[in-house]
Amino acid sequence: MRERIETILRGTEFEIVIAIGPGDPIDEALHAYDPDICLLDMRAPDSTGLHPLIQLRHSGDAPAVVLLVYGIDDDTLLSAVTHRVEGIVTEEDGNGQLLDTLRTVARGEKSIPNDLLHRALELAIRGRAANPLETLARREREIAEEVARGARNREIGERLGMSEGTVKVYLYAIYRKLGIKTRTELALLVHGRPPVRES
């Protein structure tokens, strides 16, 4: 694979400064060679997936990242976009697209196929819609978070500047929106755990 990429880049403005395999310490390589772009080959049989991208993003000041993929499943695509990948090159794009992508990324721009961007957007929208708390208004969400912290209606009213009766009215509306009946169910939703219902 390195030979193939070297052939594509031969005679261009790009050069390979280092190639590392799965499990090699990527942060040490970055510190020693300071590359402008990291080419992450997810097509290799021993690929560690997006782990290097996530590791780079958590390290702070890191180079741009371009992914080489055969195909890309929904979870991987959404995670890649969420972790601010700069470029994606699919196998069907061919060798020429790799060079175009590297040049685009080197200019500080993103190079992700439109169909993948649209797919990622649809996945993100679908994910937000799947979260029932997204249907709550700002004040309702504040009350739900107070309930999740264990606050009673009087305490919530004091913290948010409203009467205890108003809190009860809000809670009734929240329960109806979310299709629940108890404070415990609401707290579970806020903490990311769906309420367990008896069959």
Results as ranks from 00 to 15, higher is better:
82 T>P: 00
193 R>L: 10
49 G>E: 02
193 R>N: 01
111 S>Q: 11
32 A>Q: 13
65 V>L: 01
98 L>S: 04
98 L>Y: 03
148 A>E: 08
111 S>I: 07
117 L>I: 11
147 V>Q: 04
82 T>A: 10
129 A>N: 11
67 L>Y: 10
166 T>R: 14
30 L>I: 15
82 T>S: 06
157 G>Y: 01
20 I>W: 06
46 D>M: 12
188 L>Y: 01
55 Q>R: 15
135 T>V: 10
37 I>G: 05
173 A>S: 13
27 D>P: 00
70 Y>R: 11
83 H>Q: 08
30 L>S: 11
171 L>A: 09
107 R>L: 12
41 D>E: 04
91 E>W: 11
25 P>M: 07
48 T>P: 05
56 L>V: 02
34 D>E: 14
68 L>R: 03
117 L>N: 07
162 M>N: 07
2 R>E: 14
123 L>G: 03
134 E>D: 10
21 G>Y: 04
133 L>W: 05
54 I>G: 01
140 E>G: 06
136 L>R: 11
168 K>E: 14
12 T>P: 01
49 G>S: 11
28 E>V: 14
151 A>E: 06
181 K>A: 08
165 G>S: 15
60 G>T: 04
22 P>Y: 04
114 N>C: 01
183 R>E: 12
61 D>E: 15
178 L>Y: 04
79 S>C: 13
105 V>H: 05
33 Y>R: 11
95 N>H: 14
42 M>I: 09
123 L>H: 06
2 R>H: 08
85 V>W: 05
164 E>N: 13
26 I>C: 04
68 L>D: 03
141 R>H: 08
154 R>I: 15
54 I>E: 12
168 K>V: 06
173 A>L: 10
26 I>K: 05
144 A>S: 15
138 R>F: 13
181 K>M: 01
71 G>Q: 14
163 S>N: 06
9 L>K: 06
77 L>V: 05
70 Y>M: 03
56 L>A: 03
169 V>G: 02
107 R>K: 14
40 L>G: 01
161 G>E: 09
121 L>R: 13
28 E>W: 01
125 I>P: 00
100 D>V: 01
189 L>I: 00
12 T>I: 02
102 L>M: 10
164 E>I: 02
178 L>G: 05
112 I>H: 04
166 T>H: 10
105 V>L: 07
63 P>N: 08
179 G>E: 06
132 P>D: 07
187 A>E: 07
176 R>Q: 15
186 L>W: 08
198 E>N: 09
86 E>N: 10
70 Y>L: 12
1 M>K: 09
137 A>W: 12
184 T>W: 06
141 R>W: 09
116 L>K: 09
